Each structure stands twice: as structure tokens, then as C-alpha cells.
Computed example of a mutant assay.
Amino acid sequence: MAVVSISRQYGAGGVKLGMKLAERLGYQFVDRNLLGQVAEQANVSLKWVEEVEKEAGGLMARFVAEWARQHPHVRNIPDASTRFDETAYRAFLTRVISNLAAGDRVVFMGRGSQYILKNNPKAVRISLVASEQTRIANLMEHYSVDRAKAEHVVNKEEKRRLAFLCGFGEGKSEETACYHAVLNTGLVHQDDAVDFICKLVERIG
């Protein structure tokens, strides 16, 4: 068994590829939305735990319950959430991702997982890139926005992503040496990329 970390330039089509890969492998897919919910709602209601249990196969819910017991000062407030500063959020992501990775069979989408899992021998680390023009075109198609808007979003979000990665203290924000493979989604068809990653998972896992 293995785990997969996918890092991607904003607009390179990583989420679609990651979801397709997880489905193909029969793995759990953990993306920014799920991790963001956990970080903001550490002490959660029963209803939320049940929703996470269904979505994450129990692994996330058990971890959240453990974390909440160890942090009794965090309270669940209706229509509000606990905000973490970036350092605390990064530390929390490190623990969440490490715990989920211990269970194998997970595809992680971003959030610094390539650095968090750098010493995990079962982790397959992939970086997805594409030209700026390809990424802009992807956003225009996916969100039905004009070129100016897509260009603004691509540049803004990519700068934010790189700044976040710098916080992990790994030197350059996007050090390619930490990846098993770097794939250009503008040149490699999504299905071919999924096939390639599956072969890596099979060999390494």
C-alpha cells in the first residue's frame, strides 16, 4: 500500500487528476476543503463528525476527536469557527496528514504534503505543472471567466501557494528534487498521467 502527494501549480488541473487517481486506486481523496474544515472546526458537532466519517472513511473523524480531547479550550460555537494563524495551521496540517498517511491508501492534494511526507517511504510525491497560458485557459473554461480575470486569479493564487510552501523551511518554495516525478499537464493527457502515477504507486507501494 502507498500514499500519494500531489502538488500542483494553480490552474494545472490537479484536483480533477487527483480525484480520478483516487477513484482508480480505490484510495481516499483528501483535498484543501476537507483539511480546511478540520483546521477551523477542531471541536466539532456530532452532525459534522458524522459527515466527515462518511466522507473520510472514519480516519479523519477519529483524529479530530483525539485532537479535540487534547485541546479542551477550543469550543464549538454555532455559525463560527476557530481561526488558526498560519504557523499553527501548518503544524496542524502536519499532524493531520501524518496521521492519515499512517493508514495508507490516501491521495493528498497539496497543503505541503510533499514536505510533510518527505521521509515516508510509502509516499509517492508528484508535482503537476503547466504553462501560464495553459493554466489561464483552464480557469477560463472551468469557471467561465474572461482572460483578464483568469490571469489575475492564476498569478494571485500561485504566489499565495508558493509563499505557503516557503513556510515549511525547505529552502526553495518548489524544490523539484523532492518529487518522484514532475508532469506537465499541458503536454501529458490526464489519463496518461493517471496511468503513469498508478505504475509508480504499484512499484513503490
Rank of each mutant, 00 (worst) to 15 (best):
R105A: 05
T87P: 02
L128V: 03
N120E: 08
T94F: 06
N99P: 12
D85F: 07
N120K: 08
R95Y: 12
R95I: 09
F92I: 15
V129F: 02
S81E: 10
V124I: 05
E132M: 09
V124D: 00
R135T: 01
N138S: 13
S131V: 11
T82I: 15
N99G: 12
R125N: 12
Q133G: 10
A91E: 13
N120W: 07
S113K: 05
A88Y: 09
Y89W: 12
Q133A: 10
L100W: 04
Y115A: 04
A123T: 07
V129L: 07
I136T: 02
G103R: 09
S113L: 05
E132H: 04
R125A: 12
M109S: 08
G110D: 00
R135E: 01
S131A: 14
T94D: 05
T82M: 12
V107P: 03
N138V: 07
T87L: 05
A123S: 07
V106Y: 02
F108E: 07
I97S: 12
T94N: 10
K118N: 13
F92L: 15
V124R: 02
M109R: 07
M109L: 13
M109Q: 09
G112T: 03
V129T: 04
Y115F: 06
V129A: 10
R90C: 10
A137D: 13
N119D: 15
V107A: 08
N119I: 13
L100K: 04
S131R: 12
Q114H: 09
T94P: 08
L100M: 03
A91Q: 14
L139S: 03
N119G: 14
D85P: 07
S113A: 13
A137G: 08
